[in-house]
């Protein structure tokens, strides 16, 4: 019953996992993205954070910033949550689930750096949060337009040539994902990455790149 429209640009369908009406699937492309998300989530779980070296101004002295255990636990928890949300988004077979996981990635991205008490990082996280929140409007709007015009959110239906998805819905989806941290809207994200805890901060970047790669496939296939 579940077979993707041929030719699907992500490659042939390899495996389908159904949770009731929530259907996830692996194609060579989504499997590659999934493997990468798993890899970096595992790295976030097993690795210790780095200690950032700072030079004391005007001298030879340097000091390292250590992360307190409570903060480390919270950062790691948020990084794992972000990794799981990314995993959900890259293998989702349903446009709404994809948008839902994408917005969850936005929230956890703020969580990863929120515990770090530094004015610049928190300001950047706040600004990033505003952009990400605004971006959820076109994101869910795109999914809503797709549902309203085609009557379905399932990628098995949408990837077929029988259903024409309006261009504005595709543009909204891309815009929404870009708002979570891609090129013109990433300005605050660059400052966020100043926070210590490299394995966790890296997940912020992994998640937005993987989401963008996935939305490119979805939009080109529809």
């Amino acid at each position: 019953m579940n077979s993707l429209a041929v030719p699907a640009i992500g490659g042939a369908e390899l495996h389908v996992i159904e949770f009731g009406d929530i259907v996830n699937y692996f194609s060579p492309y989504t499997a590659m993205l999934f493997a990468f998300a798993v890899l970096f989530t595992v790295i976030a779980i097993v690795s210790r954070p780095e200690r950032q070296v700072d030079i004391a101004f005007g001298g030879d002295a340097y000091y390292t910033k250590d992360i307190q255990p409570e903060q480390l636990k919270f950062q790691r928890f948020m990084a794992i949550a972000c990794g799981l949300a990314t995993l959900g988004a890259v293998v989702s077979g349903d446009v709404f689930n994809f948008t839902l996981f994408t917005s969850m990635v936005g929230i956890t991205n703020i969580g990863i750096v929120a515990a770090y008490k530094n004015r610049h990082v928190l300001n950047a996280a706040f600004q990033y949060g505003i952009v990400a929140m605004i971006a959820t409007v076109p994101l869910f709007g795109g999914a809503a337009i797709i549902l309203a015009t085609t009557g379905t959110l399932s990628m098995w239906e949408l990837f077929g040539s029988a259903i024409a998805v309006p261009l504005i819905a595709k543009a909204f989806l891309v815009l929404g994902v870009m708002g979570e941290g891609m090129a013109p809207f990433y300005v605050a994200k660059a400052e966020i990455t100043r926070a210590p805890g490299a394995p966790y901060v890296l997940i912020i970047h992994v998640s937005s790149l993987l989401l963008f790669l996935r939305v490119v496939e979805i939009v080109l296939s529809m």
Partner: peptide, 16 residues
């Protein structure tokens, strides 16, 4: 994904 490599290379050492 190469972007993530560049990013990880820089952040992982703690060097300014």
């Amino acid at each position: 994904l190469h972007k993530i490599v560049e990013h990880g290379l820089g952040l992982s050492s703690g060097s300014p």
